[in-house]
Simulated scan of single mutants.
Amino acid sequence: MYKSLERTMTTERLMLRPFELSDAQRVFEYCNNYNLYKSTLNLPYPYSLECALSWIKTHEENFIHNLFYEFAVADRITNELYGAIGISHNQQYRLGELGYWMGEEHWGNGYATEAARAVLDFAFQEKNYNKVYARYFATNIGSGRVMEKIGMVREGVLLEHIYKEDRFEDLVHYGILAPKI
């Protein structure tokens, strides 16, 4: 469960908050990592400080216009940045795609799962989504485990859907519907 304070959410261990320009250096350090790049759909590599700054600058406008909600995943006490989580908002169909990344040094600590649960609650309770979906490369089984732990159901596989690094990648598609009252 999470507690929401406008654009900041807290969980047991985490604070999901808007990114600040002062986070750009850490975003650059985390994202300029080949291991992170190879398991993400849209992250460029190499990743520059300018990429981090321009990406952070898009968040406010996207949030205001209810297009995309991007949150820094940080330690609730120390505010140390661990990664990012976001969800798109297709208002016409009341659904969105969940996406996340954690700095490699924070993999395996359950932060993505904890943050994803909070974002699901935000999507269903505050933004009235009917469905949230997510996709991952079949080779990134850790991301699939996060989706399963938050109650998402495997809906199918998009075979050889993405061409990356001179090979085709399968995308595994998961989804979850809003709880019915």
Rank of each mutant, 00 (worst) to 15 (best):
M1N: 13
Y2L: 09
K3D: 05
S4Y: 12
E6G: 04
E6Y: 01
T8N: 06
T11A: 07
M15A: 14
A24W: 12
F28G: 00
Y30H: 11
N33A: 02
Y34C: 08
Y37E: 09
S39N: 15
N42H: 13
L43E: 05
L43S: 10
Y45S: 05
P46A: 10
Y47N: 02
E50S: 09
C51W: 02
C51F: 10
W55K: 09
I64R: 14
E70L: 11
D75E: 01
I77L: 11
T78N: 03
T78A: 05
E80S: 08
E80F: 04
Y82T: 04
G83C: 00
N90Y: 06
Q91P: 01
G96S: 06
M102W: 00
G103K: 01
E104C: 02
E104V: 02
E105L: 10
G108M: 04
N109R: 11
G110C: 00
A112L: 10
E114H: 03
E114T: 00
A115H: 05
D121T: 08
A123M: 04
F124L: 12
Q125K: 15
Y129E: 11
Y129P: 14
Y133T: 04
Y133S: 05
Y133D: 03
I141Y: 01
M147P: 04
G151N: 02
M152P: 10
V153T: 15
R154T: 07
L158W: 10
L158Y: 10
H161W: 03
Y163M: 07
I176L: 10
L177N: 12
I181L: 09
